[in-house]
Amino acid sequence: MELSKVPFGKYNDQAVTKYVLTNDNGVQAGILNFAGLLQSFKVPTKDGGKADMILTSENLDEFTGNGFCTNRLIGRVAGRIADGEFKIDGQEYHVEQNEGKNTLHGGKNGFYSHIWHVDGTKLTDDAVSLTLSLTLTEEMDSFPGKMHVTATYTLDNDDNLTLKFSATSDANTLFNPTNHTYWNPAKPSAATIDNLKLYVNSANHLAVDDGKIPTGEKVANAGTPFDFSTPTKLADALKPMATTKENGFDDIWEVTPSLDKPVATLEDPESGRKMTLYSDRNGLVMYTMNSDDPTVYNHGEVHPHNGIAMEAQTLSDTPHHPEFGNIDLHPGEEKEYTIKWHVEY
Score class of each variant (00 low, 15 high):
Gly67Gln: 13
Asp141His: 01
Arg72Gln: 15
Leu60Asp: 03
Asp126Tyr: 01
Ile308His: 11
Leu21Gln: 04
Gln14Glu: 15
Lys187Ala: 12
Met140Asn: 10
Ala78Gln: 09
Ile88Arg: 09
Pro331Asp: 07
His105Pro: 03
Asn66Ile: 05
Leu38Thr: 11
Glu270Ala: 14
Asn157Ser: 03
His94Ala: 04
Gly9Ile: 10
Asp293Leu: 07
Lys101Ala: 09
Asn326Met: 07
Leu174Ile: 12
Ala151Val: 03
Leu60Val: 06
Pro185Ala: 05
Ser271Thr: 15
Lys10Asn: 14
Thr45Asp: 14
Asn157Asp: 13
Asp13Pro: 00
Pro188Ile: 07
Phe249Lys: 04
Gly332Pro: 10
Leu73Asp: 04
Tyr337Pro: 00
His117Asn: 15
Lys42Arg: 15
Asp52Cys: 01
Asn33Gly: 08
His117Lys: 14
Leu196Asp: 00
Pro225Asn: 04
Leu329Met: 09
Ala203Ser: 09
Lys233Phe: 00
Lys108Asn: 13
Trp253Leu: 06
Asp280Arg: 02
Thr154Ser: 13
Met241Cys: 06
Glu336Ile: 15
Thr181Leu: 01
Pro231Asn: 07
Ser4Val: 04
Glu344Gln: 13
Lys340Asp: 11
Leu55Val: 07
Pro319His: 13
Asn33Phe: 03
Glu254Thr: 12
Asp119Ser: 04
Asn282Thr: 10
Ser4Leu: 13
Met289Thr: 12
Gly107Trp: 08
Glu246Ala: 09
Thr244Glu: 02
Glu58Asn: 15
Asp61Leu: 13
Leu234Ile: 13
Asp170Val: 08
Thr56Val: 04
Val77Gln: 08
Thr244Asp: 00
